[in-house]
Design a binder for these strands. Sequence first.
RNA 1: GGCCCCUUCGUCUAGCGGUCUAGGACUCCGGCCUUUCACGCCGGCAACACGGGUUCGAGUCCCGUAGGGGUCACCA
Length: 522
Amino acid sequence: MTVRTRFAPSPTGYLHIGGVRTALFNWLFARQHNGQFVLRIDDTDQQRNVEAALQPILEGFRWLGIDWDEGPEVDGPYGPYFQSQRADRYQAAVEKLLETGAAYHDYARPEEVQAEREAAEKAKTQFSYSRTWMAESAEQRAAYEQEGRQAVVRLKMPREGSLIISDLIRGDVTFEWAREQDHVIQRADGSCLYHLATVVDDHDFQISHVIRAEEHLSNTPRQIFIAQSLGYELPQFAHVPYVAEPGSRTKLSKRKLSKYLKNRDFANLNDLGLKIADQLDLETDTDTFNPVIVDFYEQVGFLADAIVNYLLLLGWSLDDRTEFFSREEMIRDFSLERVNKAPASFDCLKLMAFEKHYMQELPLKQKVAKCLPFLQQAKLVTSPPPCDISEKVTKIVTAAGDRLTVAGDILDFKEFFVGNNEFEYEEKAFGKRLEKAPESVELLRSFREVLSDATAFDAETLEILLKGFVTEKEIKIGQIIHALRVAVTGKGVGFGMFETLEVLGKDSCLKRIDRTLAKLPT
RNA sequence: GGCCCCUUCGUCUAGCGGUCUAGGACUCCGGCCUUUCACGCCGGCAACACGGGUUCGAGUCCCGUAGGGGUCACCA
């Protein structure tokens, strides 16, 4: 049997991080079994702009390297892959269900059903539709229509017995048919509802394993009823736990941003994103730009591998110690049996730890390549970049080392890309290291002359110069180095001092020191 | 409320009856390194929800309780 899995996003305009994890599990399972991973678009409620709302989702998957064998843009033998284009299939299924008596026309008005529901609630009994307005013959239908009633199609669910679902993750789960409702599968206007559509599609696409979020577990009985009534062979089910809020067990939702922002780590991540986005002139509307949405990570320069690896371990593990997986390894090692049953909460700090790790592992050339677009977008570097810029960025990226966690962090070093009179001084650092340290200013003044006389300006030479200066003046290096850093970068912190000077070059260093000294009393 | 699911350090998790005075990772807290900030290194704090069984023996099996969550639409 060919393994075929699917992920069915609604075209909402963004890709939710929890959804990605579900998609990832589907993708891994399909790849592991040399099967196919299908993307089906759940657009049954006819959004206006499906195409526009779909693009960010497809883009997100592409960025993460989760490729689909069939679906939008690639099509496939079982298409169309948009539910809005499959109405005829659903219609045929409805007719078959009606024919076999598994479904019926129901002429109840919504308020009539609602009244029954409320009565049951008041009586504290289990609600079960009376089927009063059920019409199974042409005569009955005509009579109701005479009254001006319209029909929906309902499932004629069994009212006794039970169903055991053998879930690949949860084991056997038992449901009583009597608790199930005669769900509507087709509206009066002929449009079909989700549960019917999903069952028909999964069958048409020959999906072998339905791997989806656990919130669908309770919906599974009715889907099984539909499938069996239609004579379909059942797929295997695997209900994965959802991704929960930071520090909680509640399902992560994009609508509760303000709540998550109260979580310190989440807020920090969000701030990191905002800081970078601000310099890039990005749209930062919280609806589309926040750590619950995959786009966020791409835009601020996260590594897709880090996100994927983190998500993989959110609810799954191989053993008691393996943390890092290449794509090949995760495809090889993944298994549904080892997916946890309990929800896992989204931990920004852990995600950052993976990002740091992958960034450290990234070859220098690729790091530079990741950073350049950010410098361009922030207009710190022209597009196309001048030919010597790559060398300069390489030096900075090297010197920055682990200080670059996401590619957008390169913008923390913008002082290297602006004019000597344009970089800004951090007030605090300026005060502490210069204004309130007149002796350091004096040392800076004399070290400026040493630099001025320097014939070579590489980090190694500069270190020898400064160390010699320190020995000669009989001072501690800290007495000059902090002042020097503020003088040439405007900042109190940064990477190695000598690398800083080298990257700036002699001319810039002298000009910057002069500019700084000019701001101070003599 | 009915039904269903879940419950090991703050978080992600290992554990499938004895090797568990519960292991790893992230976080946090010390210390070292150091020109700042990071990195790195060393060390430390920290958990089997509770109560009954079963068993020679339970984190591991069973039953309750509590807590958390999901689902009960002419949404997906």
